[in-house]
Design a protein around this nucleic acid. Structure first.
Lengths: 343, 343
DNA sequence: CTGTTAGCGCCTTCAG
DNA sequence: CTGAAGGCGCTAACAG
């Protein structure tokens, strides 16, 4: 139980004052390329030597208290055991690290209560900002954050009543590509399997799907959409597949990887010849796509671009806020294009 | 830019002293069921009322500094974009939350440098303890933690020279089950595809595999093991599959889900009839298993048990340490059994 | 170039 | 039941 070494200990040991030690430890380079504090090389080395010998670990609680900063940001995601959000989390982690930030990650399970609870917890931990995927029904929490001037960037989705910076994929264009792919492969009766969630990414895909169908003269395109719940019951995919088959569906767009896996499995169990009887195009990566011939094509979202841009914006907001500026006007939108991948 | 509300503000507003406010805010119930601090109901309500009205958020940096605690624990995992570790992270997050802890998550990519760097970063953030999946070559870092008396629990693996509490799956028994399953299905020439990593989970599986083969009279069982690297090159699975086919393999144990996906895909591309020409049993869940008939069975690790037990131990260690006790003697091992799942 | 000092916000002992 | 006061470890004026 070795007591923590403090700068005081180092100061005593090195025969200097605590402030000298502090200066040495935070030997920052100013914007002008000069050291902010000037310490003689001798004492600098001596202090560092002592610090290393005593295995000094700065106490971040004290530093945080003093500086009013934590260098921690929060990522509020849907569910990190889903590969889509797991990948986002992973990329955010790496990017945060590059910039000297630590990332706190929380899962909402698309539940607004959990969403609020995670946000609250993270605020108590003094995160300096958020990168988040808000759930349906999260408006009040978002509004609170906005009023409180907490730096926040929304990714993957956009909300009409939430005015914060926003980074996401061009889902309309992506759906046009997906649809065109199926048509190009000769599909005549195209359906869509979507999520029940009413969030922009899904809604954009559905609306565009309907527009595409309407453009091809389909009268009631919305009838070609089946929806699966986020916390899906086991029989849901089967019922949907029955419906598809009864309607003579020969082309299918699936709105996300989770429904894709369950629908493909249900089709398989119904002995449907996937990519022959029914052509599929999906959204987001899954490792099942490669097990068909030809492989099931999918829209890959530019996660790298999205996470990078989101972090850039967040850092900028944090900086602005640090200068005491009001960031509530900052609400630019950035849209990146997805890519159709056919392995 | 509304300045943060402090207990001082509340005290002034409520016409009481700061200590009263503090008492009210930490209105703990002692072990004897009584309140630790006695405050009149009147002032209690008044203070709480003011706090709510002013939207008081306790400053955790100050609290941490004062109490020497952060209520943060660190999870150091392999790669959270892998569903296996993503699930672990997710469960740890939930369990930590239940106990009022916040979880920091870091990925090592099985690289000891990254491992050390994550540990260092987390220590600087004053985590109170670790739940970790150490990489090959992490001994020095582990030893450091041990000497420093940092509460640490290792999961998923065990290391001969690391004496900390340990929770993992009985990989030997699991492999016996997997092997017996293949034999029961009539496989005569059984191979194993493993990971190149020399970590206990993999080694235990390999050794048991060899023992099983030897028990069935195979002379050089180690020749039946092919290994794939963690950061796999695209051609690796193909080469392995060629080798398997050339050797007349008709039964295959795969040591983990990541190699399973790539090997299955390579088999598929070679037009091998999976589950007919070659029977497979795998470790760890993947959503590709269900796309074969019969579904590919797999050993499901008891992640729930492992994460729960690991957290229980960690909380215990943290408590012990809080009482100033030396925890370096604590190094119990807990082993849970896996389950063969055939969907 | 170096030392002194005043807090950051909170908890907790010690007096009333 | 309530208040005053000290200090956790660190940083950043401000002096020298």
């Amino acid at each position: 139980m070795n007591k923590h070494i403090t700068i005081k200990d180092i100061a005593r040991e090195a025969g200097v004052s605590v402030s000298l030690v502090s200066f040495v430890m935070n030997n920052r380079i100013g914007a002008d390329g000069k050291r902010k504090y000037r310490v003689s090389e001798d004492t600098r080395i001596r202090v560092l030597e002592v610090a290393r010998r005593l295995n000094y670990q700065p106490n971040s609680a004290a530093r945080n208290l003093r500086q009013g900063r934590t260098h921690v940001i929060g990522a509020v995601l849907s569910d990190m055991s889903n590969i889509f959000y797991g990948s986002i989390a992973r990329q955010l982690e790496d990017i945060a690290l590059e910039h000297g930030y630590t990332l706190l990650i929380g899962s909402t399970d698309e539940n607004p209560q959990k969403f609020e609870s995670v946000v609250r917890t993270f605020l108590e931990k003094d995160v300096e900002g958020f990168i988040m995927v808000p759930t349906e029904g999260s408006e009040s929490t978002m509004e609170y954050l906005q009023n409180a001037g907490v730096p926040t960037v929304v990714i993957d989705r956009h909300f009409p009543y939430v005015h914060v910076p926003n980074v996401f994929t061009d889902n309309e264009k992506a759906m046009e590509t997906a649809y065109a792919t199926l048509v190009g492969q000769g599909a005549r009766r195209i359906h869509m399997v979507s999520y029940g969630m009413r969030i922009s990414s899904i809604i954009d895909r559905e609306n565009t799907f309907c527009r595409c169908l309407a453009g091809d003269g389909v009268e009631h395109p919305e009838e070609r959409i089946s929806r699966i719940s986020f916390d899906m019951k086991p029989e849901e995919p089967k019922l949907i597949v029955d419906h598809l088959l009864a309607d003579g569906c020969d082309g299918l767009v699936i709105a996300s990887n989770m429904p894709a896996v369950s629908i493909i499995k249900a089709l398989f169990q119904r002995k449907v010849k996937i990519q022959k009887d029914i052509r599929i195009v999906s959204f987001d990566y899954s490792n099942v796509y490669g097990l068909f011939d030809p492989a099931i094509p999918y829209i890959q979202q530019p996660l790298q671009d999205i996470t990078r841009k989101a972090c850039d914006i967040l850092y900028h907001l944090i900086e602005l806020r640090g200068e005491g500026r009001d960031i509530r006007g900052e609400n630019a939108t950035y849209v990146f294009e997805g890519t159709l991948i056919q392995e």
